[in-house]
Design a protein around this nucleic acid. Structure first.
Length: 955
RNA sequence: AGUCGGUUAGCUCAGUUGGUAGAGCACCACCUUGACAUGGUGGGGGUCGCUGGUUCAAGUCCAGUACCGACUACCA
């Protein structure tokens, strides 16, 4: 082993070896009871790269997988990537525009999708390479892609069956239209942002000479979108509204357009808001659309797919059929105008006509496309939808009755609130990259759905001369990823893999995609996957919802903020210039570069040093608490890098004393010291803690348990306690043998315990010590996970070591207080010793002398006068360090006074409690007894310290 | 507007069924002793957002309140 821990020297070769040997595959391992345990990786975008969120979630999955694999489960971690429709298509479109000045239309559909496949082949490996660096023990043999052949078949099958079950339909509906990307998007892909805008109050003249109650010949409607008035087909007032009772059923003349539109009564109109009159544009507003349905108002579409004003409106009845009776002319002035320009013009024209009552400032929520960043337009188009409510019902029940559990549980609320009010899901996208919808049309516009054209022809008896054309649209990416748990296992074929590994055990994901993915996966899986009794199968038993990793200030990591941290840079390190280039180069908004550069230079003046994968992973585990936001902290990373170093050096020490030595693996007798028995006992406890915390997905606690044990017990105390035994030439062979054996076996157990968290360093060390520890095997990965054995918990040894520790700490305390160097040997005297103290003293002279650097320890004889000394208490025993000439009277008095005060406070607190009648009578007896014992102890301590103070003063 | 989080040491965060507040980093002092200075030893530092209530006992349970945040819906 190298002298200092150097992660880069070990990581790559270890991973390669694991992968080559096939240890990640379920079949590689034949130990244990082989209970299936499976996790499906949330498929990252195929052309993406690993960010902190991936590193976080994948590290958690790897820990769970490695833990269960070591426990002897038949373990599958399914890996794969997502074709990521819009995201990938956009990347390639941008690329060809930048490199060739072409658009996708220059290429044509087929050539363009070929181009994307090329790009996928070229850059698709990045994220999987990075997964390897992270140590992810995924089963590479069965890697999947959401557009591979098998998945394609699964998607077609699902679509066809849902259509046959009347759970998919096509229709002209109002959808969220992205005028830049030219596609419909689902509700979830719309981001509502608060924007400062205006409210325009418009006068609509009444028809037929009608007058309002106030005698005016117009009514006033308020709107934030005046341009849509071109498509108004009514004005609504509340049926209860007395002001307008007389006008219901009458009409207004729509200004500029001069269309006569009715005044209708609908509860949508709020009497409290504005004037109480609302213009109704059923083709351009979701609420108005509903009003249109209720009041049977036609819809007039006045916008193009670009979001410009049409040359001529399109009229539909509310059921979507074409309406030819309405005049859909659009005033010439606005034809072809961009939507926001049209808004300006229309307002100006209304003003000129004296129809603009007033303009108010108004803050409103505006919908933006999450990919394009442009304002979304509600638009009437033909789209495919999934009827969500029937699918949601069993999916809700599965969470209600606990077949699926969210961890932390609070996320169930989020799930329920969305699922119980679920809207139909628009699944068609006007893109080229994705799963093409398996629907065909004939010239008459009839639609046929089937697995392929041949099937469609056969089923519907369509002769060859009839031309069928396939639907141009593709499916929402989330439609295919909703099939991930069973699609990856071979469905629709009834494969062994499906039978063995479905339902999966746990889904690890962020709360941000509960709606996008988790909910839809539950719905789809429960519809298609049934167990032997025909009951719906859930996709997974647990949903472990992680928080989102943010930067050190709690800000979301984003390229435009320049605060993105690349997990690979944590592992391998990066110099400042490279980091600046990475953050500022190739930016969509170059004007931010200067600010980002400045920020980067001040946050990382020396770049980022290499910390290794294990340190990165350990940091992620330690941060994996139940909160929703997780603030990244470089200091923690450094702390855990140090932890790795600590482990490495401890292993060096162990090797130094065990390599080629008799480690008690044969038949020779061994003697176990108190320290040996103690560390074995403590090991059982930490094993139990880790087991419990892993079962509750508290990896933060588990990693903390391990850290405490390794650093504060094994390294800080046990290794020190082993030294006097191993250094002592005269120590009996069986004792040395026992200590060597314990030393190396506990280290070996620690390596197994820690392996799911820090796979590299543990494997590297384990390979070095396995022989001394008396274990065989090619890899730590397939060793059994340590199980706590309650029979090996030794409470006596634990109490004895506590005594020893407080003795040693007491001496160290005196050294620090009196400025006595750690290497200066001391003589100590003991007073007020109990039988236990004497016994412990006799058993542990060597330990005490070595760790506290003592020359002699002697119990004061009865009646013997104690010399001038400074004192520490170990329970009721007094440890005296004679201070011939050393004493600083003032300093020592001050120290004693401080101690006395501390105990006096305690005494007061306990006395107060115990004098409380109610406490005595109501608190449980054991609590009272404990308080009494504490009081007595504090009182005794105070008394002794006071005695000493007197003695000092008397000097 | 609704739902759900958060508010604990200078910073980032733990705190499991109510029983005298913890970690890492930072800080102070001392120490290069035969695993480790990416280290060791000792130490300082918190009226647990605020107000009430339940209880012998509240960071922990209940009610209210302030601030911060997320999500959902809506605002003509």
């Amino acid at each position: 082993m190298e002298k200092t821990f150097n992660p880069q020297a070990i990581e790559r070769t270890l991973y390669q070896n694991w992968e080559e040997k096939g240890y990640f595959a379920p079949a590689s391992d034949q130990r244990g009871d082989r209970t299936p345990y499976s996790i499906m990786i949330p498929p990252p975008n195929v052309t993406g790269s690993l960010h902190m969120g991936h590193a976080f979630q994948d590290s958690i999955m790897d820990a769970l997988i490695r833990y269960h694999r070591m426990k002897g489960c038949n373990t599958l971690w399914q890996v794969g990537t997502d074709h990521a429709g819009i995201a990938t298509q956009m990347v390639v479109e941008r690329k060809i525009l930048a490199e060739e000045g072409k658009t996708r239309h220059d290429y044509g559909r087929e050539a363009f999708t070929d181009k994307i496949w090329e790009w996928k082949e070229a850059s698709g490996g990045t994220i999987t390479r990075q997964l390897r660096r992270l140590g992810a023990s995924v089963d590479w043999d069965t890697e999947r892609f959401t557009m591979d052949k098998g998945f394609y078949a699964a998607v077609q099958e699902v679509f066809v069956r849902l259509y046959e079950d009347d759970l998919i339909y096509r229709g002209k509906r109002l959808v969220n239209w992205d005028p830049k990307l030219h596609t419909a998007i689902s509700d979830l892909e719309v981001e509502n942002k608060e924007v400062k805008g205006n409210m325009w109050h418009l006068r609509y003249p009444l028809a037929d000479g009608e007058k309002t109650a106030e005698g005016k010949d117009y009514i006033v409607v308020a709107t934030t979108r005046p341009e849509t008035m071109l498509g108004d087909t009514g004005v609504a007032v509340n049926p209860e509204d007395e002001r307008y009772q007389a006008l219901i059923g009458k009409a207004v003349i729509l200004p500029l357009v001069n269309r006569r539109i009715p005044i209708v009564a609908d509860e949508h109109a709020d009497m409290e808001k504005g004037t109480g009159c609302v213009k109704i544009t059923p083709a351009h507003d979701f609420n108005d659309h509903e009003v249109g349905k209720r009041c049977n108002l036609p819809m007039i579409n006045v916008m193009t797919l670009n979001g410009d004003i049409r040359q001529q409106g399109e009229a539909y009845n509310i059921d979507g059929t074409v309406n030819q009776s309405i005049d859909t002319a659009i005033p010439e002035a606005y034809r072809g105008m961009e939507r926001f320009a049209a808004r300006k013009q229309i307002v100006a024209d209304l003003d000129a006509l004296g129809l603009l009552e007033k303009i108010d400032d108004h803050t409103l929520m505006v919908p933006y496309g999450d990919r394009s960043g442009v304002v979304i337009e509600p638009l009437l188009t033909d789209q495919w939808f999934v009827r969500a409510a029937p699918l949601a019902k069993p999916a809700i029940e599965a969470v209600e009755d606990g077949r699926i559990q969210f961890v932390p549980k609070q996320y169930e609320n989020m799930y329920f609130s969305w699922m119980r009010d679920i809207q139909d899901w628009c699944i068609s996208r006007q893109l080229w990259w994705g799963h093409r919808i398996p629907a065909w049309y004939d010239d008459a516009g009839n639609v046929y759905v089937g697995r392929n054209e041949a099937e469609v022809r056969e089923k519907h008896n369509i002769p060859t001369p009839v031309v069928l054309t396939q639907d141009d649209d593709v499916l929402d990416t989330w439609f295919s990823s909703a099939l991930w748990t069973f699609g990856t296992l071979g469905w629709p074929e009834p494969t062994d893999r499906l039978n063995t590994f479905h339902p999966t055990d746990v889904l690890v994901t962020g709360f941000d995609i509960i709606f996008f993915w988790v909910a839809r996966m539950i719905m789809m899986t429960m519809h298609f996957m049934k167990d032997e009794d025909g009951k719906p199968q859930v996709p997974f038993k647990y949903v472990y919802v992680t928080g989102l990793i943010r930067d050190e200030h709690g800000d979301k990591m984003s390229k435009s903020k320049g605060n993105v941290l690349d997990p690979l840079d944590m592992i391998d390190g990066i110099d400042l210039e490279a980091l600046v280039e990475k953050r500022c180069g190739n930016m969509m908004q170059p004007q931010l570069a200067e600010k980002i550069e400045k920020r980067t230079r001040s946050t990382f003046p020396d770049g980022i040093s290499a910390h290794g994968t294990d340190a990165l992973r350990y940091t992620l585990y330690s941060l994996a608490s139940t909160g929703r936001d997780i603030n990244w902290d470089m200091n923690r990373l450094e702390g855990y890098r140090n932890f790795c170093n600590k482990i490495w050096n401890a292993a060096n020490y162990v090797k130094m004393h065990t390599d080629d030595q008799d480690c008690g693996n044969g038949d020779e007798p061994v003697e176990l010291t108190l320290a040996d028995r103690w560390i074995v006992s403590r090991l059982q406890r930490v094993e139990a803690q880790i087991e419990k915390n892993l079962s509750e997905f508290r990896l933060d606690h588990a990693s903390q348990n391990l850290y405490d044990f390794v650093w504060n017990e094994y390294c800080a105390w046990y290794l020190e306690l082993s030294k006097p035994v191993l250094w002592d030439e005269h120590a009996p062979a069986e004792r040395k043998r026992g200590t060597r054996r314990t030393l190396v076996r506990v280290l070996e157990a620690i390596m197994r315990l820690a392996h799911p968290f820090m796979p590299y360093i543990t494997e590297a060390i384990w390979q070095n010590i396995k022989h001394s520890a008396g274990v065989a095997g090619d890899t730590l990965m397939l060793q059994s996970y340590p199980v706590s054995d309650p029979a090996r918990i030794d409470e006596t040894a634990e109490r004895d070591i506590e005594w020893l520790k407080s003795f040693i700490t007491g001496i160290r305390n005196i050294r620090a207080e009196l400025n006595i160097g750690p290497s200066k040997p001391l003589n100590v005297l003991l007073r007020n010793t109990s039988a236990d103290d004497v016994a412990r003293l006799n058993d542990n002279q060597t330990f005490l002398k070595s760790l506290a650097k003592l020359e002699d320890i002697r119990v004061l004889a009865a009646g013997e006068e104690a010399p001038m000394a400074t004192t520490q208490l170990v329970g009721s025993m007094e440890v005296l360090v004679p201070m011939a000439g050393l004493i600083d009277k003032d300093k020592e008095s001050a120290r004693l006074n401080k101690e006395i005060e501390r105990f006096a406070k305690e005494v007061a607190r306990f006395e107060g409690k115990l004098n409380n009648e109610k406490f005595i009578s109501k608190a449980p007896a054991d609590v009272v007894a404990k308080e009494q014992a504490k009081l007595a102890e504090a009182q005794a301590a105070r008394a002794k310290l006071e005695e000493q103070l007197e003695a000092i003063k008397a000097l």
